[in-house]
């Protein structure tokens, strides 16, 4: 059983804890994700989701605990170290430059250039590669020549995801990909995630607190509460209703403790 599954395992977190001085952000996180798997990481604001994401991207170092990537123990020293392993993150702000067109955004900081130290941009190459990548991923936009400011939230998210995937991402972290988006826009981005999942090689962690939207695309959901994973089930073995019950119970407990205090 263990041998059969280690071949598919992409990332495993063991007893990850993180303190900021007196404040404990994460108590004891145990989590794993396989290749081709989509994991929904759910939890209330302040449950520790963002801290966990920052640990996975190498932005923050855990106070204790061990990460394993590709079956080997790793210590992520920086964001670029994590990136070199194929861990890419799409933050909520998307890190897109409004004034720049789509293809220049897609290659920002990894631009193909001509003329060596002169650094003359190879626009032709960027444009062609951007069109191909967006098309392959099913991100539909009117044109790659328009500034990204002109695109909708879903399209912008699609471009940010395509940018990460193009960098040969093996583990993709999506921070609230459908936050503040309408149903149509969310469908667009969920469709992109579904396609990546069907390719079967990339692990995807979706961080969200609106689980109803992302439930269908996930293989498994984990619920973070008080710096621990308190719930870990395959989506086929749970339901939105069960999750709602858990969250409501959590909310009632929180209220009770506030009233008691």
């Amino acid at each position: 059983m263990a041998d059969a599954s280690t071949g598919r395992e992409l990332l495993r977190a063991e007893h990850i804890a993180k303190n900021y001085g007196q404040v404990t952000a994460l108590t004891d996180i145990n989590l794993r994700i396989d290749r081709g798997e989509v994991l929904g990481l759910l939890g209330d604001n302040g449950a520790g989701k963002s801290t966990l994401m920052k640990i996975f991207t190498g932005f923050v170092k855990p106070s204790s605990g061990q990460l394993h990537f590709d079956g080997k123990p790793v210590e992520l020293s920086s964001v670029s170290h994590a990136r070199s392993l194929g861990i890419e993150a799409v933050y909520q702000d998307l890190a897109l430059i409004n004034e720049l067109n789509v293809y220049r955004n897609m290659f920002l900081q990894r631009e193909p250039v001509k003329g060596r130290f002169l650094g003359i941009l190879d626009d032709k190459k960027m444009r062609a590669a951007a069109i191909e990548q967006l098309d392959r991923m099913g991100v539909r936009i009117p044109s790659v020549d328009v500034p990204v400011a002109k695109l909708s939230g879903g399209q912008r998210q699609g471009i940010a995801v395509a940018r990460s995937v193009y960098q040969k991402a093996r583990l993709l972290l999506l921070d609230e990909p459908t936050a503040a988006m309408g149903a149509k826009e969310s469908a667009l981005i969920l469709d992109v995630i579904q396609r990546l999942k069907d390719e079967g090689e990339m692990g995807i962690i979706i961080i969200a607190h609106n689980y109803a939207q992302i439930f269908d695309v996930c293989d498994r959901v984990n619920l973070v509460e008080g710096g621990r994973i308190v719930f870990d089930k395959k989506t086929s073995e749970t339901s939105v209703e069960e999750l709602t019950d858990m969250v409501v119970r959590e909310y009632r407990e929180a209220r009770r403790s506030v009233q008691a205090g």
């Binding site: 702000d93 890190a95 897109l96 430059i97 409004n98 004034e99 720049l100 220049r104 920002l108 900081q109 631009e111 250039v113 002169l118 650094g119 003359i120 941009l121």
Partner: peptide, 13 residues
């Protein structure tokens, strides 16, 4: 050029 692109990026976001 890269320099110009990164200048626009730096000021834009």
């Amino acid at each position: 050029t890269r320099w110009g692109l990164h200048t626009i990026g730096t000021g834009g976001n």
